[in-house]
Amino acid sequence: MMSTTVTTDQFMQAIMDTLYMVGMSLFVGSLIGIPIGILLVVTRPGGVLESKMLYAIINPVINIVRSLPFIILLVAIIPFTRLIVQTSIGTSAAIVPLIIYIAPYIGRLVENSLLEVNPGILEAAEAMGATPFQVIWYFLLPEAVGSLILSLTTATIGLIGATAMAGTVGGGGVGDLAIVYGYQRFDTVVVIATVVVLIIFVQGIQSFGNILARKIRRY
């Protein structure tokens, strides 16, 4: 008979922590990342608000942040985190680096989704005399919604992976539980339970994203 030192309450708390971290950082990350993605598309050469300067700034900055592994980002920005949330440990402290990690990623994913939109549609928009804002709002975004949902699904799954490392700053969550109890104390049950929960999360989110995207696309 296998036994575990982790209580059900602890386990439930870990799940809640993970959901909280993923949810918060996805929300704030999207608020930052979606506009970044839009900005990348409209300021790029040939875009409706072409701006060499803006594009030349945003593009490399995103690349730089994106090239940092999360675990390094987590530690590197501790002073900044402390400034924002007044602490450098705990769940809230983990959310700051998670946002900085995910926002540029969402930006890139959104950029790719928007670039998939048939350029002919933008040409039609331009021929109608749409303003740049109208092009984005009435043409670009509606045409990309299905793809945007799939992008956010991918981002969410990426976040779940990143939260597992949040334990480094005492962020909690199921990943933390697996490392602290499962790996360091050889509690196999916790490891298995964690893996099962993560698989369910990822599968659930992916399926949900797929269904939603298909429902919205209808084509």
Binding site: G120, E126, G129, P142, R217
Partner: peptide, 28 residues
């Protein structure tokens, strides 16, 4: 942009919004 409202255009590959119904395409 105002002048373009006076010039309609149609395309080889139609360039309709796939995400919108026929009604909304014409309404745009």
């Amino acid at each position: 942009r105002a002048a373009k409202k006076n010039i309609g255009m149609i395309f080889q590959h139609f360039n309709l919004l796939e995400s919108k119904k026929v009604f909304d395409n014409v309404a745009i």
